[in-house]
């Protein structure tokens, strides 16, 4: 049986991201009631796991680190068809950078036990770092392929995948267990089904904190993070905008004339 672990992150809904600001005093995010959703690329990771499960005997464990409310996104993954959901939630985990997050996830993976494949989205929509997957692989001492956009060949131990590479791709042969971070091109994530939601009601989310993982407090959260935010400068606008008014036709005509005068069209 193929044991798959899918790492998902609860992120503020990217559609409402412009409502999020950073508190200048504490330098932390002020989320202002923006709802938490599954990070878009993590949905592709989840879909990849579901597709594999359709093809072969597989077990899907969803792993997420976040505030207690992130339980909802774990629940969503259970409704999509994951077999087991684990939420890592502890005040000690708060403020983790990518390194500490990857470390905590790696320790949790060891706690889950046997696994063959770890799937993550290539990047998170809120932080835009891409480090958690590859750093987790390093901590677990297993190979990593980032930006996987196609699974070409599934073998017993050795798999072949295509990974995005500049304007083309890189064909990679990799031995499992491994970490793949996936891109949107890999698949089209399915929508939640009503029956899935009903079935998920019976599935329990496992909640682990620092005690369950048995890791020292200095190695997780803000204490275990090598990087910190030192300063926040507010953005400065360097351009004086001219807002064009009039009817649609007038506005279009005016801007074309202006751009012609500027010599840019």
């Amino acid at each position: 049986m193929l044991n798959i672990i899918v790492c998902v992150k609860a992120v503020p809904d990217p559609k409402e991201a412009c409502n999020i600001q950073i508190d200048p005093a504490t330098k932390t995010l002020m989320r202002c009631d923006v709802p938490l959703v599954v990070n878009p690329l993590d949905k592709n990771a989840m879909e990849a796991a579901l597709k594999l499960k359709e093809k072969m005997d597989a077990k899907i464990t969803v792993l997420s680190m976040g505030p207690p409310e992130a339980g909802n996104i774990v629940k969503e993954c259970l409704a999509l068809g994951a077999d087991q959901g684990i939420l890592l939630s502890d005040p000690a985990f708060a403020g983790a950078d990518a390194y500490a997050t990857a470390y905590t996830l790696a320790k949790s993976v060891e706690h889950v036990g046997s696994f063959d494949l770890i799937l993550c989205g290539m990047a998170s929509s809120d932080g835009s770092t891409e480090w958690v997957g590859p750093e987790m692989g390093t901590f677990l001492n297993i190979p990593v392929v980032t930006m996987v956009k196609e699974i070409v060949e599934i073998g017993d131990e050795w798999w072949k995948v295509k990974a995005g590479f500049e304007t083309g791709f890189r064909l990679v042969r990799v031995k499992l267990p491994a970490v793949f971070t996936v891109t949107r091109e890999l698949n089209a994530p399915r929508a939640l089904s009503f029956s899935g939601i009903i079935k998920a009601r019976k599935k329990e989310i496992t909640r682990w904190g620092i005690d369950e993982l048995g890791v020292p407090e200095e190695s997780v959260g803000i204490k275990g993070s090598p990087t910190i935010v030192s300063k926040l400068d507010s953005k400065e606008s360097k351009r004086a905008v001219e807002v064009i008014s009039g009817t649609r036709e007038e506005k279009a005509e005016y801007i074309v004339r202006k751009l012609a005068d500027e010599g840019v069209i």
Binding site: A98, S128, W131, M147, F165, P226
Partner: peptide, 23 residues
């Protein structure tokens, strides 16, 4: 921040147990 750099950088950073700032 190339395809290679975006993979190699975190592999190196985690191996050296240090921080890495993105892009």
């Amino acid at each position: 921040s190339t395809a290679m750099g975006r993979e190699l950088a975190p592999l190196v950073a985690a191996s050296l147990k240090t921080g890495l700032t993105a892009h």
